[in-house]
């Protein structure tokens, strides 16, 4: 009763990046509980990338295969994972708080009749009890909870649990399982058009403000975003959205979207508090502005004072070299 089940995700037979974060979080719990981590992935066949998971702390990686598991099948997934969780007597079950995990974890929890802490940013074991931290009230407060039922079910906010390498290899096995046909069927996945990453989901957001001077100049930011190889989205301040330079969907701030990317680059944005409300939970904030007194420098981790039309192209050039 001290083992942890880590539920991974694959898409089209390839393990999703968030899976290594799930293993990392599960390992943290298992270390506290002095138990093992069993990683579970449901797929139609073999999955690429699972051999690396031992390196993140999985003692065992189990692939459950079924012809219906190629795409997310909510009812079959729920049944198979709940059965496995019950049979294995795990102390905790860890999901990713991804689109799939957020849908699946509550179903599994309800099926097992236990509580769920969704979208957590930290997990720990304190005095034998599983505790978590979850941002609530739009990130304006942190809620610390303990999960008293067994298994404790949690889902981890993506991009938060940095995968930690361990000098350890886990075993792997593949088991074909039977699963009931579900009533809910994912019939297709429409891939988003290339380069249309949403600001709310992109790991890197580059936002422009009035300092860009005119709409055509956003090209400078788009080039920087492109240099990041499809991981970056271009956002905008309210002032420029209001002026009709950029669509409302791109607006970051109190009346726009709240973002918390790994890297937020504010270009030519003075940093009105309305803008800060939408991006202050970003992991790292960089500000580029010619006014050294701009309030944005107070929240930025790193600031560059200067003409954005000189600084940004130089940055683009260097990023291209880095990714070249």
């Amino acid at each position: 009763m001290s083992d942890v089940l880590a539920v991974l995700e694959q898409r089209e037979g390839a393990l999703r990046k968030v899976s290594s974060e799930v293993v990392t979080g599960a390992r943290r719990l298992a270390d506290g509980l002095v138990g093992r981590v069993e990683a579970l992935v449901l797929a139609a066949g073999s999955v690429q990338g699972i051999d690396h998971l031992g390196g993140f702390g999985a003692d065992q990686v189990v692939t459950l295969t079924n012809g219906a598991f190629g795409r997310y099948a909510p009812e079959a997934y729920t049944r198979v994972i709940a059965d496995r969780a019950q049979a294995g007597g795990y102390r905790a079950v860890v999901f990713a708080a991804s689109a799939t995990g957020r849908d699946l974890a509550p179903r599994v929890a309800a099926r097992l009749g236990v509580g769920l802490a969704q979208d957590v940013t930290d997990v720990a074991v304190e005095g034998g009890a599983v505790t978590v931290i979850r941002p609530v009230y739009a990130g304006k407060a942190l809620l610390k909870l303990t999960l008293t039922a067994t298994p404790a079910i949690v889902s981890l906010r993506p991009n938060v649990f940095t995968p930690v390498q361990r000098p350890k290899a886990g075993s792997a096995e593949t088991v074909a399982v039977h699963a009931p046909a579900g009533r809910v069927v994912v019939t297709a996945i429409k891939a988003a058009a290339a380069g249309t990453l949403d600001v709310a989901e992109a790991p890197i957001v580059i936002s422009g403000g009035r300092g860009l001077k005119e709409p055509a100049n956003f090209k400078v930011l788009e080039e920087l975003a492109a240099a990041f190889g499809g991981r970056a989205a271009v956002g905008a301040s309210r002032a420029v959205v209001d002026a009709g330079w950029r669509p409302h969907a791109d607006q970051v701030g109190q009346t726009g979207k709240t973002v918390s990317p790994t890297l937020y680059i504010a270009v030519g944005i003075s940093g009105a508090i309305q803008h800060l409300a939408g991006m202050r939970t970003s992991k790292v904030i960089v500000a580029i502005n010619k006014d050294k007194d701009a309030p944005i420098f107070k929240v930025a981790d790193y600031g560059v004072v200067g003409d954005l039309f000189e600084v940004v192209p130089r940055l683009t050039e260097e990023i291209k070299k880095l990714h070249g």
Binding site: I285, A287, K292, F297, K298, V299, A300, D301, Y302, G303, V304, V305, G306, D307, E310, V311, P313, R314
Partner: peptide
């Protein structure tokens, strides 16, 4: 935070 420097 801190200002890293000025210009390119």
């Amino acid at each position: 935070g801190r200002v890293v420097g000025e210009g390119p």
